[in-house]
């Protein structure tokens, strides 16, 4: 077993029961994250990114649940952990940050209380010692005068500042992995850039691994070493960031890139992919992207495997796009 392998997911499937039958929000997902790695997960809204993150945390909303596959963390299988075992892992070895900083903090508890409890849930330390750890974490994410901030309530902070508090909270127990679910989507561009820069620095300094989830390939490209593209609950393309950006092989990835503002020729409108996500409870038999794909043929009626095109690049398509020069 590779010692550097921090997170290893195989064939993960997470379903929600619905009146029309089970809805697989995540299906057949294989992922690997090594220590110090930054993995970006990209896909349009509804593609299953959040549910994937929650599955890794054992936090899928009931009656939804992981119905197949295995998740191993630090070499230990955690798929069938009991609630008590999950509690020991969450916020301790794996932390998660959510999309909307305005709702992630309890409005009626002081910031200090909400941060200190995260430490005391896992370590037997005095409140004073915990407060010191909190101060240090706040400074690390660029929050000034932490002592005053500890006494404040969330509504007294700006959105960007609240997200920093959330990030600082995630850092408190020095986790091996942070799952950041679109942490900057709700923030303005300047704050987003600052937070991206800070997170990059934090990962470099601490050696923790990061899964950065976003619907925006441009944001992910700025931080991730590797990128996985999700579509309708499946990973359709995965590879090193530079390789993926230079030669996207899946028509969906190519479409995502064409719709990035930076890639639009001056004066021209952005090209967006026609159509929308298919209904997850009623997916096409073969490739889920076929209804929107300009390259679809009858060969696409069979679900393609995620297969390597080069050592650091895999794609789920019967006729991957050729490398562009």
């Amino acid at each position: 077993m590779n010692q550097l392998k921090l997170l290893s997911i195989q064939g993960l499937r997470t379903e929600f029961p619905t009146p029309d039958g089970p809805l697989a929000a995540v299906s057949g997902v294989d992922l690997e994250v090594t220590r110090g790695d930054v993995l970006g997960i990209v896909g349009e809204s509804g593609s299953g990114k959040t549910v994937l993150g929650l599955s890794i945390m054992g936090l899928v909303d009931r009656p939804g649940r992981v119905t197949a596959g295995r998740i191993a963390f630090g070499g230990t299988e955690i798929t069938n952990y009991s609630e008590a075992q999950w509690q020991g892992l969450r916020g301790n070895r794996i932390a998660m940050i959510f999309q909307d900083p305005t709702t992630s903090l309890n409005p009626v508890q002081r910031i200090g209380v909400q941060m200190i409890e995260a430490i005391q849930a896992h370590r037997d330390v005095s409140t004073d010692a915990a407060r010191q750890i909190v101060r240090e974490a706040m400074v690390r994410v660029g929050i000034n005068s932490p002592d005053e901030r500890l006494e404040a309530y969330p509504h007294q902070f700006s959105g960007g500042m609240r997200q920093r508090v959330v990030i600082a909270t995630a850092l408190l127990n020095e986790p091996d992995l942070i799952i950041a679910d679109e942490p900057t989507t709700a923030l303005d561009v300047t704050v987003q850039a600052q937070i991206l820069r800070d997170m990059r620095r934090l990962c470099r300094d601490t050696g923790m691994a990061l899964i950065w989830v976003s619907h925006d390939l441009g944001v992910v490209a700025q931080i991730a070493h590797r990128v996985a593209v999700m579509y309708a609950g499946r990973i359709v393309e995965q590879g090193a960031t530079e390789v993926m950006l230079k030669s996207p092989s899946h028509p969906y990835t190519a479409g995502l890139m064409a719709s990035m503002p930076a890639n639009a020729p001056r004066g021209q409108r952005l090209v967006s992919i026609p159509g929308g996500l298919p209904q997850l409870s009623n997916l096409p038999k073969g490739c889920s992207f076929a209804p929107r794909c300009a390259h679809a043929t009858t060969a696409c009626d069979v679900l393609p495997e995620l297969s390597p095109t080069s050592p650091d690049h895999a794609v789920r398509c019967v006729s991957p796009l050729q490398e562009r020069s």
Binding site: L59, Q87, M96, F98, L105, N106, E117, A121
Partner: peptide, 14 residues
């Protein structure tokens, strides 16, 4: 609410 989900993500007991 999200803050309950975040509280659970911190590893707090029920």
């Amino acid at each position: 609410q999200d803050y309950i989900k975040f509280a659970r993500a911190k590893g707090l007991s029920s």
